[in-house]
């Protein structure tokens, strides 16, 4: 029914008689068509490329602040650190951080503070800390042991979970994949590629300050990825 209607119409009749593709055309037409086919594809490629460049550019994140900031600990926290004996002290502090476009916020964070008998003893116990006892950061280098204190990042150097201090085992134990660290933060068991990361620590007119650094996880070397949370 519909076919008959189509055949009766002028368009249907015209279609029957002649198709543009029946005639290969003159050499000029062939040459022009091949140009137009290539040009159409090229236009598509240019548009694709022009879109791809800003898209790829947008995907690579802008670098984070390369400047570290010091966060003060409260007087109480410093007292508890000074009173530390044979186990690490959880030091809580307020970390100011800016998460992309969100307003800067202050959130609770913590680090582990340990008291060591001497810098030499600590460095002997920590095989993954340079013998110089210093690590690089935004202001140059910082000494890992300051006033016989060492501040350890709570982030597991394996895949970014948080090891817990276990009193009876006398170790830090990570709940995720079972990495273990002794009181010095030295890696003693499990999959972590290095010991716990020491953080910069300084005392200024009675106030203890620490710097929050995030190191890349899963690799033996300490690569700073961020000075923010």
């Amino acid at each position: 029914m519909s076919k008959q209607a189509a055949a009766g119409s002028p368009e249907g009749a015209a279609r029957k008689i002649y198709s543009a593709y029946d005639d290969p055309g003159t050499p000029e037409e062939i040459s022009r068509r091949s140009f137009m086919a290539n040009a159409t594809l090229a236009i598509g490629g240019i548009v694709g490329l022009a879109l791809a460049i800003p898209i790829v550019g947008s995907l690579v994140p802008a670098g984070s602040s390369s400047k570290g900031t010091w966060s003060p600990l409260t007087a109480d926290e410093l007292t508890s650190l000074q009173a530390a004996t044979a186990k690490p002290v959880k030091l809580e502090f307020q970390l100011k951080s800016q998460d992309s476009y969100l307003p800067e916020q202050s959130s609770g964070e913590y680090v582990w503070g340990i008291k060591v008998p001497s810098s030499a003893k600590f460095l002997a116990a920590r095989t993954d800390v340079p013998k110089s006892g210093t690590l690089p950061y935004s202001d140059g280098t910082y000494t890992v042991v300051t006033m016989n204190f060492v501040i350890l990042s709570p982030i597991c150097p394996h895949l970014g979970c948080r090891p817990l201090w276990n009193d009876s085992a006398n170790k830090f134990q990570c709940p995720c994949h079972g990495s273990q660290f002794d009181i010095d933060g030295e890696h003693v068991a499990g999959p972590a590629p290095r010991g716990m990361d020491p953080l910069p620590f300084k005392e200024q007119s009675g106030v203890a300050n620490i710097m929050w650094i995030r190191y890349e996880s899963g690799i033996p070397n300490r690569v700073i990825i961020s000075y923010q949370s």
């Binding site: 690579v60 998460d99 995030r214 996880s217 961020s226 923010q228």
Partner: peptide, 25 residues
């Protein structure tokens, strides 16, 4: 972090995370 383990994974992790650490991005 597992995505960041293999060679070249660090940039992949950076792009997927939208920054050096996990957050709003």
């Amino acid at each position: 972090n597992i995505a960041g383990l293999p060679p070249g994974g660090a940039i992949l992790q950076l792009i997927a995370q939208g920054g050096p650490v996990m957050g709003t991005n």
